[in-house]
Amino acid sequence: MAGKRAARHDEGQAVGKVATVVLPADCRIAAQAALQAELAQALQGGAIELDGSQVERVDTAALQLLVLLRRALDGCSGTLAWRGSSAALNDAAGLLGLARILELPAVGPA
């Protein structure tokens, strides 16, 4: 389902409305400052598409940043969509109970 939605937003990006941000393979605390800058930039447009398909390692700091992004988008009636998400990302989000907020497929407990 998420994949389908991502495809649609891909077209949108060409019009300059939706910004796509690719999450790095090592998406842990040390990578968050750079990611935050990129997301803050993307936030200007109000619509963000995340590509989490390459994520191999992820931690709470990363998921937290995404949750806070979600909150910021909600605050300005923006939209968040996924172009893809790796198993590692889904797993971690599920475990922390953040999958629903992030609209990721829920895995793990919850």
């Binding site: 990611l35 803050a40 709470t60 937290q64 806070l68 909150r71 910021a72 109970g97």
Partner: peptide, 14 residues
Amino acid sequence: EFAAIDPGQCYLGW
């Protein structure tokens, strides 16, 4: 503010 967040800090509770 999203930009004001320190991504090294933790702001989550469960």
